[in-house]
Design a protein around this nucleic acid. Structure first.
Lengths: 137, 137
DNA sequence: GCAAATCTTTCGAATCGTTCTAATTTTCAT
DNA sequence: ATGAAAATTAGAACGATTCGAAAGATTTGC
């Protein structure tokens, strides 16, 4: 039997992040199990609810570190709120403004034609498609 | 000779907005001339610099009203900062994270394949593509 | 093993962009 | 002109995020 959270631990080490108690706690919530979209506040509630002692500032720090290390993707769909996506493969999103919910769209589901050449001195870092939804009345 | 700002005035009336002094001042900056991307703070500086007396709160109110009336589009590319685009036709954007600058991409330049059907109870309100750029070193 | 050096976490305060509030001023139809 | 309705204002309030300094861990050299 392998140790339970060995994988998370390795992911952190590979990313150059020490496997501290709070990073492991957040890593367990984010890096195992199904893909999810979380805000810092949601994740803080969740980790507190699990009986772990982690400050909101550390949740922010950790989300930013994970994102910098490529373990998460940040998604910006509303000014004033950041979502973090545990699905780091290239893909797109539905965003429902009325409910604030995000849903993944596979990259292949929206074939993109050629992207225009970027301006001189820049290169393309990523292409994201957001399909905004409204509730039908 | 036609009166200079008649067109802006009509646009406001058509949108159901009274052509007040400050809305006219902002309308002149936004609704005539070339397409542009502005933040509330930038626009406030600009209108103040032009010698007009307009509060920041009014700039925010007006940007939101113009957006609601379809005279502007709001673009979200960074959490914590909203851009407003005077180009209201369907189109996409380059966004350079290092400089914070936005550039338009014609809708035809990025042909989108079929968009997956939206979840039940929702309909597509819009599709936006953001091509994120980084500076080449 | 142990202590020094380094990295992390923490909490509260600070900051940012934005919205709200209540009072004043402007606009428009009469 | 007059009065009702709408708009503007300054500043307070707000939520999300970041900062800063001190306290707490972890690693490294010995």
């Amino acid at each position: 039997m392998t140790r339970p959270f060995q994988k998370v631990c390795e992911q952190l080490r590979d990313a150059g992040l020490r496997p501290t108690r709070q990073r492991m706690a957040l890593g367990k919530l984010l890096l195992e199990g199904a893909d999810r979209h979380v805000t810092a506040e949601q994740l803080h509630q969740e980790v507190i609810g699990a009986g772990m002692q982690v400050s909101l500032a550390t949740v922010y720090n950790t989300l930013n570190q994970f994102t910098g290390a490529g373990l998460l993707k940040e998604i910006v769909v509303e000014s004033g709120r950041s979502y973090f996506d545990t699905n780091i493969s290239a893909h797109h999103h539905f965003f429902c403004e009325s409910t604030g919910s995000l849903m993944d769209i596979d990259a292949e589901s929206i074939p993109l034609g050629t992207i225009p050449a970027p301006p001189p001195g820049t290169e393309i870092a990523g292409v994201e498609v957001i399909v905004r939804l409204r509730a039908t009345k």
